[in-house]
Amino acid sequence: MMRLLSGDAPRSRVLALLLALILLALAFAPFLFPGSRSLETAARICVVIVLVASYDLLLGYGGIVSFAHTMFFGMGAYGVAIAADRMGPGYDALALGALAGLIAAGIVALLVALLSLRVRAIFFAMITLAIASAVAVLVSQLSAYTGGEDGMNLRIPRELTPAFRMGEVFGLRITGKILNYYLVFTGCLALFLVMLRIVNSPFGRVMLAIRENAFRAEAIGYRVVVYRAVATCLSAMIAALAGSLFAIWLRYVGPSTTLGMELMMDILLIVVIGGMGTMYGAVVGTAIFVLAQNYLKELMGGLSEATSALPLIPDLLSPDRWLLWLGVLFILSVYFFPTGIVGRLRGTR
């Protein structure tokens, strides 16, 4: 067990319990929470965990602020979509598309890193923002390849679509959609364990050292620019793989689902709420965030009805105000847990 976690114990009983709960819930989601909407939410949580964790590799371990992370996520997604569009619905198209996205993300990340990691952190952040915006414009303009603003629907192998049926398990009809979910779940779990391994390796320790004091890391013999470039590439490539999985799951890619600034902001928020430089923060943060995004509205609707006899309160709790309450939740969590949920649970300052 500890080998699988690369020796990185949760170091808090509550955290261990939370992680186990989230893992079990995701592993048995189709059986525990039947219905297409909850499955949709579970798959989204899986993918976003990997996306956020790969960003944590950059921000929490390397101290690098980038706004181009969704660009790499999009590269993986569009890689699969374009390959499936050209080659037809086959596993070879999916694999080749994912590989192409992975390589493209790696190369672009290397270029960005080598061109700009020598400059100060704020300039690096600005450069990534500019590149990400340019790519987003490019994707919406090159509609012959990318479907433009409309995005594109993917044709994937029949075994992964709802039309495919293969009997019942525990009274649940197993469709291609459920097989597809398990593809996403297994892929995300594997990617997460790979990242956990990387951050606990000698390389991961060097990244922590660079975040703490880059000047000293260089002085004791670590070439900081090269380490940062490697971290940027790794993080981009993992984000691309997460993007490929997401495209296969949704059977659709579009600028807003994969490249948008909104998604980038979500990632930033989740890393901070979950706890930077912890990896597990991505899991806890994402679960809470995505659940809140999807179910806060319903919860408030229920509460509003339940309090309908009282003055003012039902208005405040009206489902239309859900974004307001989401905002309040964030402010409170950042105020009370400056080191994130995981930092708080581990009792570090």
Binding site: S6, I198, S201, P202, F203, R205, V206, I220, Y222
Partner: peptide, 23 residues
């Protein structure tokens, strides 16, 4: 860890991505 990082730099094992630092 401050000293271990120095020893690790001298041993040139910083690009070791797939082993555990504890190992």
């Amino acid at each position: 860890e401050n000293v271990r990082l120095v020893v690790q730099a001298r041993a040139r094992r910083g690009f070791n991505l797939w082993t555990m630092a504890q190992g």
